[in-house]
Amino acid sequence: MSVAQRSRPELPRVPAMTVLAYHLTGYRRTWRAGVFSSFLLPTLTVLGFGLGVGGYVDQGVNGVPYLEWIVPGLLASTALQVAIAESTFPVFANFQWTRSYTAQNAAPLRVGDIVAGHLAFVLFRAVTASAAFLLVTTLLGAVASAWAVLTLPVVALLALAVAAPTFGYAAAVSSDSWLAMLFRFAVIPTTLFAGVFFPVESLPGGLRHLAYATPLWHAVDLCRAAMLGAPPQWSVPGHLLYLAAWAVGGWALAVRRFRRRLVV
């Protein structure tokens, strides 16, 4: 058979899917270790904050029992934690330690395929962890409304909104100590002040506006509206557009940073 006639397989129609498949293959080996914590953690937080702290909050928040009020916030913050954890060290490692991105870059993938495939995996991780959280809290009786399922697309959007820029950040930093800084100075303060544990209105003016700027607050407000059936504090399209803007801006940043590392 001559070379000219040799049949070559068609390149994948959606190349990013083959990248996602690669990440899932790796996850098949490690998911068991994670599954325990994704069920244990919500149980502990519900017990600790909902019942422990909630016991002291007699009147609830705006008339809602503290446990029910806090669950939507914890759900969104779980999605945020997982999304950022999966976009920091794993991304850094794929550049620096295992060099998986370099291997992918030598194949007929484009930089955007490499980013999209990995981002899809992070999305998968964040959504499954959130679903596990929702399942556990429902079983514990902390979820009142079936509308709670609407929180899943919201946390998916939140995951993209925070994971995409974090991809860009992890691709740009020279040492992994910058990743620990991100947790210390961005993730932890966000989790504390973006309306997860107490209403943002109780914050002083300046801090309150900072809280409104975080993607987490927007997701928390949407999740709370869905789970409690109460009107959100801000417009729903506004929330969605704000999160989408973070996702789109983050995507542009990530692709730019990846290209600078991979195509030189």
């Binding site: 397989p9 990248v19 498949a21 690669y22 293959t25 194949a107 007929p108």
Partner: peptide, 10 residues
């Protein structure tokens, strides 16, 4: 096998 998929190998 994961690498072959990038090339569209079934």
């Amino acid at each position: 096998t994961t690498y072959a998929r990038y090339f569209g190998v079934p």
